[in-house]
Design a binder for these strands. Structure first.
Lengths: 150, 150
DNA sequence: CCTCATTAGTACGATATCGCACTAAATATA
DNA sequence: TATATTTAGTGCGATATCGTACTAATGAGG
């Protein structure tokens, strides 16, 4: 009788996949019109890490192929959330900046999402999350390196 | 100066999203030809939970829309991994069964993936994962309920 | 029985994702 | 400096995802 009970690693990645799916859906339900969680992710990233980074850097941050990020950024531009300027240091490259509209939208999206996660925050205290984060971050970094090693 | 440092909840879902992305890519790199992680997920689900369930039940398990699951199951059928039989209890419904090929492929996929996660398993012991899982499962269940409450 | 509402699955269309191939610029090497 | 290699971003095509609307079967209430 082969392994009917899979290793905890499969369970882990399975749970993570489902949580991702659920949180994404939950978020997108509360976003205005055509905005997706990927757009939200980009806006958040720009605020957190700082504006003026390149598309490739953002793609790496989210670990998605660069063509995917090209598409996502195109969506953000179309929505008027970001602006793509030439990179003064490298003519092949671009620099991404938030527009004031992008900044506003992001603010309201964070607020929206916060209310959406209210119930969640009641059940899972910040402290509990904070104890969880280091492990997840470590995993992310490890997988990240493993990917480079290909 | 508005919240440049986002709540840990955003960080949490961000990390989970990236880990999902990384693990999925890592897995799919090691799968044969046209097989996707979603197919792998279905096969695993059938082995773990038991065969003979319905498409809708599987869709709910992965928290994806049923039309998505229709498509995924179609792919599995096309690859000869599963078989869709009529549901004797409900003529609208179907029952999903693994083919022997599906069982074989799943076995070898598990083996493949296991070697892929070798390095990961070295850094993150089973014990460590086991302590992590209850929280994640609780989160999944909570978000699950929150979704139903819509 | 006979509506009427609900439910399982699907067809279809829109769009997101992503591999591959390409261009242009930068960098390394001779 | 001239040439080769690497790198940033994009166009294109294939396919995955998913919302909407539909069909057929079930179940509920008369």
């Amino acid at each position: 009788m082969p392994d009917t009970r899979p290793s905890p690693y499969f369970v882990l990645f399975n749970e993570i996949g489902i949580i991702h799916q659920l949180s994404r859906t939950l978020l997108e339900e509360r976003l205005p019109d055509g905005l997706l969680s990927s757009h939200f992710g980009v806006l958040n990233h720009l605020v957190r890490v700082g504006e003026g980074t390149t598309p490739l850097a953002i793609a790496r941050a989210f670990q998605v192929p660069k063509t995917t990020m090209t598409h996502t950024l195109g969506g953000c531009v179309k929505h008027g959330l970001i602006e793509m300027r030439p990179n003064p240091d490298d003519a092949r490259s671009k620099c991404i900046w938030l527009t004031s509209k992008g900044r506003e939208i992001r603010e309201s999206m964070v607020a929206q999402a916060a209310t959406g996660f209210e119930g969640f925050a009641e059940h899972f205290s910040e402290e509990r999350i904070e104890t969880l984060l280091p492990v997840l971050t470590e995993m992310r970094q490890f997988l990240d390196k493993a990917r480079d090693a290909t």
